[in-house]
Amino acid sequence: MPKTKLRAAALAGTADDVEATFYESLQRGDIDALMACWADEDEVFCVHPGGPRLVGASAIRGAFEQMFANGAIHATPAHVRRVESLASAVHNVLERIEVLTAEGPRHAFVLATNVYHKTAQGWRMVAHHASPGTVHAPDESEEIPQTLH
C-alpha cells in the first residue's frame, strides 16, 4: 500500500493511530504528513519546550519547518497515559529525543501532552504541549511519578 494510503488509513483510525503518524512524521521530517495529523481549526495550538504558544496551522507549520531545516526530529514516545471519551482523547507522553553531538548520540526527555478530537475528517490533533522532562532516563519498569506538584 502506498505511504499516502497508509497515512490516510492511520488518520481515519483512532487517536493512537494519529499519534503514531505524528511521531513517525517527526522522525522522517515529513511536514505534510505531520500537518495532516492536525485538525483544520483556527484554535489548534502547539507549545515546544521553552517556546511561545503557537496558534493556528500556519504558525505550527512554520515552527516545524524551521525544526526540520536542521533535520528530522528523532522523538520516540513512551510511558503513554491516556484519558479518552467518545469524541476526545488526551495523551500524556514521555518523549525520548535523540540528539547527535560531537561525542555521539545523547538522549533528552520531554514530557508532552497531546490532545485529539474526533472531527468530521476523523481523529485529529488539536493541541501539543511539550516541556522539559526528567533529568535521567527512566527504566522501562520504573513508574513515572503521578503527582502534579
Rank of each mutant, 00 (worst) to 15 (best):
F109N: 11
F109G: 09
F109H: 15
F109Q: 14
V110Q: 05
V110K: 01
V110E: 03
V110H: 02
V110A: 13
L111P: 00
L111A: 10
L111D: 05
A112G: 15
A112R: 04
A112N: 08
T113N: 09
N114H: 14
N114Y: 14
N114V: 15
N114C: 15
V115F: 09
V115E: 06
Y116N: 01
Y116H: 13
Y116E: 00
Y116M: 02
H117E: 14
H117Q: 11
H117W: 11
H117K: 14
K118T: 05
K118H: 14
K118E: 09
K118L: 12
T119K: 15
T119W: 15
T119L: 08
T119F: 13
T119G: 11
T119D: 14
T119P: 08
A120Y: 06
A120T: 09
Q121C: 12
Q121S: 14
G122V: 09
G122P: 04
G122I: 11
W123T: 00
W123D: 00
R124G: 07
R124T: 05
M125L: 11
M125I: 12
M125Y: 02
M125N: 07
V126L: 12
V126R: 03
V126A: 04
A127Y: 04
A127C: 06
A127M: 10
A127G: 08
H128L: 05
H128R: 08
H128C: 05
A130E: 01
A130T: 02
A130P: 02
A130F: 01
S131W: 01
S131I: 02
S131F: 02
P132K: 03
P132S: 03
P132Y: 02
P132G: 06
P132R: 04
G133D: 03
G133Q: 06
G133F: 01
G133W: 00
T134S: 12
T134A: 05
T134Q: 04
T134P: 00
V135A: 15
V135H: 09
V135S: 09
V135G: 04
H136K: 10
H136D: 12
H136S: 13
A137G: 08
A137V: 07
A137E: 13
A137M: 12
P138I: 05
P138E: 05
